[in-house]
Amino acid sequence: MATPQRVHVVHTFTSDPATVVAKLSEHENLGPVFGAKIRRVRDGDTSRNGVGSTRSLKIGPLPAFHETTTVAEAPTLIEYKITKGSPLKGHWGRQILTPTADGGTQLDYTIGFDVAIPGAAPVVGKVLQVAISKGLPKLTP
C-alpha cells in the first residue's frame, strides 16, 4: 500500500483483543476516536462489521466521506479504505491488535494517504495523529 504520508499510533488497552476488536469494529463507537459524526451506511457481506461494512464520517464543516472495511480478522486485524467522497487519495487504515502479557491489548494503528494539494499531507497527518492519539483513550472497551 504505497502512499507518501503515514500516521502511526500505538495504544495499549487493558481489555483483551476480542473485546477491543469488537469495540473498534462497531462503527457507531468511533465518533469520539475520530472527533466525527459517524453513521452506518451498510453492514458487511457476511457479518454486521465484516468486510464490506461501510461508515459515513462527517468531521466539522468538511463533506462526509465513506470508509469501507476491506479486511476483518477478529481479534487481530481490521483494514479499511476510503471509498467515497474524500479529498484524500489512496487512503487506507490498518489496525493490528496484539495481546499483552497482562491480558490487555496493544493496538498498532497505521494510516496511509496522499493529498492533491502540495504540502498538505504532512499537515493532515499531524492533525490525524493528534486526534487519534487523544481519541483512542475515550474508547473504553
Rank of each mutant, 00 (worst) to 15 (best):
A2P: 05
R6G: 02
V7F: 03
V9Y: 04
V9M: 09
V9T: 09
V10Q: 15
H11R: 14
T12V: 14
F13P: 06
S15L: 11
D16Q: 15
D16F: 08
T19A: 15
V20G: 06
V21M: 12
A22G: 14
A22K: 08
K23V: 02
L24A: 08
S25W: 02
S25Y: 02
E26T: 12
E26I: 02
E28R: 13
E28V: 12
P32D: 05
V33C: 06
F34M: 12
K37Y: 06
K37N: 09
K37E: 11
K37S: 10
R39C: 01
R39L: 04
R39N: 12
R40S: 04
R40A: 11
R42A: 15
D43Y: 06
D45Y: 06
D45R: 13
D45E: 11
T46I: 07
T46V: 11
R48C: 07
N49T: 14
V51T: 07
G52A: 04
S53W: 01
S53K: 04
T54Q: 04
R55H: 05
L57P: 00
K58Q: 11
K58S: 08
I59L: 13
P61N: 11
P61E: 10
L62I: 12
P63R: 14
F65A: 00
F65I: 02
T68G: 08
T70W: 01
V71A: 12
A72H: 14
A72N: 06
E73D: 15
P75N: 01
P75W: 00
T76G: 11
L77H: 08
I78R: 04
E79I: 04
E79F: 04
Y80F: 10
Y80R: 00
K81Y: 02
I82D: 00
I82G: 00
T83Q: 06
G85D: 09
G90Y: 02
H91C: 01
H91P: 00
W92Y: 12
G93H: 01
I96H: 11
I96R: 15
I96Y: 03
L97Q: 02
T100I: 14
A101C: 10
D102M: 05
G104L: 02
T105E: 05
Q106L: 04
L107M: 12
Y109R: 03
T110D: 11
G112M: 12
F113Q: 10
V115N: 13
V115E: 03
P118R: 15
P118C: 13
G119D: 03
G119I: 06
V123F: 04
V124I: 14
G125P: 07
K126Q: 14
K126E: 09
V127W: 07
L128S: 06
L128P: 01
A131Y: 02
A131E: 05
S133L: 06
K134N: 12
G135V: 08
P137I: 09
T140S: 14
